[in-house]
Every structure is written in C-alpha cells, then in structure tokens.
C-alpha cells in the first residue's frame, strides 16, 4: 500500500483554479462559502481527482498506465487540511477495460482519500496497466 499526501493551502486553491479557469466562489471566498452552508472555502473536485490519479500513477509506475479513474465526493475539505490517498488492489484483481476478469495486465485499484480527522473525502477506483 502506498500513500499520497498533500496539504493544499488557499494559495494552492487559487493557483489550481486559475490554471483550470474555475471561478466558482466557494473555492476562494470563505464568507460566500459559509453562506452556501460550508465551513469555508473548499478544495476543487478536480484537485481531489488529481490526488487520486497520482496515487494510481505511482502504483502503476507511470502516468500513462492509468486507463480509467472514478470517484465519488463524500465530504468537502478545506485549505490547510492534509489529504491522504491510500491504494489497495481490489479483490477482483486483474480486470478488463469493461470490468470483467482478464489476463491482459489490467489491475483495478481501490482508492480512498481521507482528511486529517480520518473522515473519507473521496472514494474511488482506478484501472491501470500493470508494469509489474
């Protein structure tokens, strides 16, 4: 099992938002985010996705080996909170791109992203081409 850890601060959210042209105010304005029922500004879903992707790519050894990636957002996280992604090989093990067992070198990984209190922020999976 390998972990990916990242603690985005508000500057990181600003940079990430600028690079993706994302202007949704819940990522930048704490007062506005609180008006929306959040505790403050929140990490972008795509940034969570990047951490899940990174975990899968590291497991596979190369970013190009990541064939597919999926996740559900479970709970928001804010700037300053350390995010940790853990990886495990699913019991299904090798899968075809359609999800059926196959001996074509594809492996399904289960991905869990948690915040500093252990709460699950995202649950996901990746299918990677195994270089192992």
């Amino acid at each position: 099992m390998r972990e990916v850890r990242f603690t985005p601060d508000q500057a990181a959210l600003d940079r990430f938002g600028a690079s993706t042209r994302n202007s949704h105010r819940i990522h930048y304005e704490a007062d506005f985010a609180r008006e929306q029922g959040l505790d403050g500004t929140v990490v972008m879903a795509q940034l969570h996705g990047c951490l899940l992707f990174r975990a899968a790519a590291r497991w596979a050894g190369d970013p190009v080996r990541v064939v597919s990636l999926g996740w559900h957002n479970r709970a928001p996280s804010g700037p300053g909170a350390e995010l940790t992604v853990t990886v495990s090989v699913s019991e299904a093990g090798a899968v075809s791109e359609a999800g059926a067992p196959a001996g074509d070198g594809l492996v399904r990984l289960e991905l869990t992203e948690t915040g500093p209190d252990g709460a699950v922020c995202c649950l996901g999976y990746a299918v990677v081409r195994s270089g192992r």
Partner: peptide, 29 residues
C-alpha cells in the same frame, strides 16, 4: 505544479518523457 505534483514527467516540459497531465484537460473549464 498547482496540484502538488512532483513527477518531472508532468511538471517539466523539457523532460524527455514529458506528458500533458491527463487530469489537465478534464479539469479545464
């Protein structure tokens, strides 16, 4: 870089194995 990536294949365009971050295009609004 903004996503905290450290793999030079994704952060350094001069790297011989440079790759456009696969999450970039799907994040670009």
């Amino acid at each position: 870089e903004a996503a905290g990536e450290s793999d030079p294949r994704l952060t350094d365009p001069a790297h011989p194995g440079f790759l456009l971050h696969p999450m970039y295009l799907v994040s670009l609004l």
